[in-house]
């Protein structure tokens, strides 16, 4: 089986991704968690990343999170991105997808 290397340019960490596997799925299998995991359906935008170099193809993603210009700039949702070469990625985002109203204690008492 063919594997590609996904290099996180922000942290210097890397994991391998089997041909035909999404970037997010491969990260989960590797045990890393630097890309947050959302709906896995290209809808919620939580796993948004940017590919700095390398080739990939993408399934359908919500235009609310990846509009055409952003896609052209290498932005994608990791749950829908399938590498076709080694990739260098950034997980820096333009802020959280949505602010949560509950600013009070969200954890156990």
């Amino acid at each position: 089986m063919l594997f590609f290397t996904i290099f996180n340019a922000d942290s210097g960490e890397a994991f391998r991704c089997a041909e035909g596997t999404t970037i997010l799925q491969a990260m989960e299998l590797s045990g890393y968690s630097f890309i947050p995991i959302g709906c896995k359906g290209g809808g919620c935008g939580i796993c948004k990343i940017r590919v700095l170099s390398g080739e990939y193809r993408c399934g359908k993603m919500s235009a609310a999170h990846i509009h055409q210009e952003a896609a052209a700039d290498g932005f994608l949702l990791a749950c829908k991105g399938i590498p076709t070469s080694d990739l260098s990625i950034s997980t820096q985002k333009d802020g959280p997808a949505l602010a949560w109203a509950f600013t009070t204690n969200l954890t156990k008492k």
Partner: peptide, 10 residues
């Protein structure tokens, strides 16, 4: 409440 439950919406 997990981060995902709080923030993942469509």
């Amino acid at each position: 409440v997990s981060e995902r439950f709080r923030t993942a919406v469509t």
